[in-house]
Amino acid sequence: MTLIAQYHVEAQTGIGFLLQQGHILTVIDPQGEQVADLVAFGQSYKTEWLSSGRSIDYSETIYLTTGHVLYSNRSTPMFTIVEDTVGKHDFLFAACSSEMFRILGGIEGYHPSCFENLVKNLSPFGITGDMIPTPFNLFMNASVLPTGQIKIAPPLSRPGSFVRLRAEINLIVGITACSTEACNNGTCKPIDVEITN
């Protein structure tokens, strides 16, 4: 594989970039137990975005891993997961936001959030806050209990754990190093990203 681009995403920040069809996106957890929020949009039609509902529906599971396809809201394949060293991710929770911290945590002051970081880093590509879909929350360890309650536990990722995804169309991609301490076993850490072909 030829390295095309490499990014280091500091804790509680994000990035936005273009990803071409056929290229491989590798998201790495360098320190372990750190979630990365992933969203994507079509380069041709920005109203086509990564869809939690379509991806879960067509895969018939909420636990998407190696071999599964991630679909758009128009049922277009956007990514194929080609390698996954963790096997447990979340596609149910929205990106954390200032409203989430206020409603669930009672935090009235400023707190960094994935929603803010996605909007900030995707705005140069014409993506607005109202367009941000439910992210594919890489490494997030969420389980649905028999009662329907969703329990969040520390990520299963260890230092160097990664997920490789192949772009099936030309994409605009946003990735964050999640800002919610509770999802990352108490501390927010960086995420590394590589693009290869």
Rank of each mutant, 00 (worst) to 15 (best):
M1I: 06
T2I: 15
T2G: 07
L3Q: 11
I4A: 08
I4E: 09
A5D: 15
H8K: 11
V9M: 08
E10P: 02
E10Y: 11
Q12V: 15
T13I: 05
G14C: 12
G14H: 08
I15F: 07
G16Y: 00
Q21P: 01
Q21G: 06
I24D: 06
L25P: 02
L25V: 05
V27T: 13
V27K: 07
D29P: 00
Q31L: 15
G32K: 08
G32E: 05
E33A: 01
V35N: 00
D37W: 02
L38W: 09
V39L: 08
A40I: 03
F41H: 04
G42I: 15
Q43I: 14
E48L: 13
E48R: 07
S51P: 02
I56G: 03
T61S: 11
T61K: 10
T61Y: 10
Y63W: 13
L64T: 02
T65H: 11
Y71I: 00
Y71M: 00
S75F: 07
T76D: 08
T76W: 02
P77F: 12
M78S: 04
M78Y: 07
V82F: 09
E83W: 11
E83R: 12
D84K: 11
T85L: 09
T85R: 04
V86A: 08
G87L: 15
H89N: 02
H89C: 01
F91C: 06
A94S: 11
C96N: 08
E99P: 00
E99R: 06
E99K: 09
M100K: 04
R102T: 12
I103W: 05
S113A: 10
C114Y: 10
E116W: 12
L118I: 15
N121P: 07
S123W: 03
P124H: 12
F125H: 06
F125L: 08
I127C: 04
T128N: 08
T128F: 12
T128R: 10
T128W: 09
D130F: 13
M131L: 10
M131T: 06
I132S: 02
P133M: 10
P135R: 05
F136P: 00
F136K: 01
F136R: 02
F136M: 02
N137A: 03
N137L: 07
F139D: 08
M140I: 10
N141D: 01
G148R: 04
Q149I: 13
P154K: 03
P154R: 02
P155R: 01
P155M: 07
S157T: 00
S157M: 04
F162E: 07
L165W: 04
L165T: 00
A167S: 07
I169Q: 09
I169A: 09
I169S: 06
N170V: 06
N170E: 13
L171M: 02
I175S: 02
A177K: 07
A177T: 03
S179G: 10
S179R: 05
E181S: 04
E181V: 03
N184F: 07
N185F: 14
T187G: 03
D192E: 14
T196S: 12
